[in-house]
Write a protein that binds this DNA or RNA. Sequence first.
DNA 1: TTTTAATCAGACAATTTAATCTGTTTTAGA
DNA 2: TCTAAAACAGATTAAATTGTCTGATTAAAA
Lengths: 143, 143
Amino acid sequence: MTVIFSKKCEYGLQAVLFMAAKEPGCVCPSDEIAKKLKIPKEFISKILQSLTESGIVDSKKGKSGGFMLAKHPSKIRLIDIVAAIDGLDLFNSCVLGFPSCSPDKPCPVHDKWGELRSKAYEMLSAETVDKFKQKTLNKIGKI
Amino acid sequence: MTVIFSKKCEYGLQAVLFMAAKEPGCVCPSDEIAKKLKIPKEFISKILQSLTESGIVDSKKGKSGGFMLAKHPSKIRLIDIVAAIDGLDLFNSCVLGFPSCSPDKPCPVHDKWGELRSKAYEMLSAETVDKFKQKTLNKIGKI
DNA sequence: TTTTAATCAGACAATTTAATCTGTTTTAGA
DNA sequence: TCTAAAACAGATTAAATTGTCTGATTAAAA
């Protein structure tokens, strides 16, 4: 199989987009997120804990606790979530798996691929989660 | 970690590019490929066997046997190798892992990502392995 | 004809990733 | 104060991917 982001990262992106689509400052228990997004509860819980350590999400323990965004949605870029969970290796390592692929030791597809990769990086860096509010609400309604 | 192609696919692409950089019709034992590309021998052997079933590679058993390309390098597209090993799911399934992501049930980043994905697909479909002969020779010399 | 070097076949092992389980701590609200 | 519901912590299991091993078959060359 082929993957762009790990499952952790996919779920992390889903969850942050979900929280960004709710009222600002609103507290979401992991149980609610898990049910709405059809993600295993313990798994999304772990992922949100790690995003809390990364400073993207905040958490509140105890009854009526849960997770909330640590910053305004307009300050959270998609690339921040990817960087926190999967890291940025995807944008630096060789797509063919060659060792030490670099401008002076380029792999055969270095240029062709590099161009696409840069575009992907730019897109993820430009887009913040607040931009997807309406689209997220639409999608959640159809899962 | 993040991945575009599986290790199998990376190695498969490397091996086919390697063979395409040699004299046409030339027979390469898997042992040679493994050594030149620093890939575990048994692993690349398995991968080449599967590419043989896919009709991209041919094989010759017995002493002085090995693998060779089944078609002219100008007829082997990068996407053919990816399709044979990893399949084309990457270009159809949701980058956020949402179920049934489609034009009428788009995920939040459906359009933004779809654009990049199409460009990647077009590149892999347009490029044939003969185009990379010189670049491959350069890279092999520097591994 | 025998040896040698190759693919091929299938089981096996190791590693990584994904998911689950058990229990502890925290805190709001009854 | 007590209870319920939440995050948190860490161990464990399950599944997928990656890599290895053993042996059978094939065919060129000595």
